[in-house]
């Protein structure tokens, strides 16, 4: 199974127009973020696809329960984190799939970036994944949430059931651990 549809900036595939429109809008606005969190948290493209599908199906079915106390993105992230944990439990001790399926890269650059750019991004993604895989969840999760520029320390704190100060301290240690792990992947 392919790791992801990696495209350098500006090379997105034509989006599918999902119906009903409220699902389409939600998917269009948030699916990249949900998929990225799932992909890098789990380190497995097939599982990340399952999670993304399940998150939006659940969210669509329970949209009436969304009270607006957080942003829609934060609500979706909460569902994503729970789904990731469930998936990980279900898949525990099963066959480990490689997340470096070469087939996806062969055609990824057809309409967009150059093969070299695609390769550069692929290698970067693999290094990031290897570095993240070395971190405990308590570091990996806040780092990945912070990758979304819309997420504040307060929002991350709510999602991870900690105080904002605790998140700030944890992120400091997480950055340090990630930087060291990333350097080792060179």
């Amino acid at each position: 199974m392919a790791e992801s549809e990696r495209n350098a900036e500006g090379a997105e595939p034509a989006p599918i127009r999902l119906e009903p429109p409220e699902l389409g809008r939600m998917y269009e606005d948030h699916s990249r973020y949900v998929y990225y969190l799932a992909l890098r948290f789990l380190g497995n493209a097939e599982q990340a696809e399952d999670v993304t599908h399940d998150v939006f199906l659940k969210a669509y079915r329970h949209l009436g329960q969304f009270r607006g106390r957080s942003t829609l993105r934060t609500w979706l992230y909460r569902i994503t984190i729970n789904s990731c944990r469930n998936v990980r439990q279900r898949w525990a001790n099963r066959n480990v799939l490689s997340n470096a399926d070469e087939s996806v890269w062969a055609g990824a650059a057809a309409d967009g970036p150059s093969p070299l750019r695609v390769l550069e991004m692929k290698e970067l993604g693999e290094r990031i994944q290897r570095a993240l895989d070395q971190l405990p969840d308590e570091y990996r999760l806040p780092l990945l949430l912070l990758a979304d520029a819309e997420m504040s320390y307060e929002a991350i704190a709510r999602l991870t059931d900690q105080s904002a100060d605790a998140v700030r301290g944890k992120l400091y240690r997480a950055r340090k651990a990630f930087a060291a792990a990333f350097a080792r992947t060179a």
Partner: peptide, 16 residues
């Protein structure tokens, strides 16, 4: 670094 990585990743069309 992570944001650059995230910019290059989107869910495959088959998910939609």
């Amino acid at each position: 670094l992570l944001r650059e990585d995230a910019r290059g990743v989107s869910p495959p069309e088959r998910v939609a």
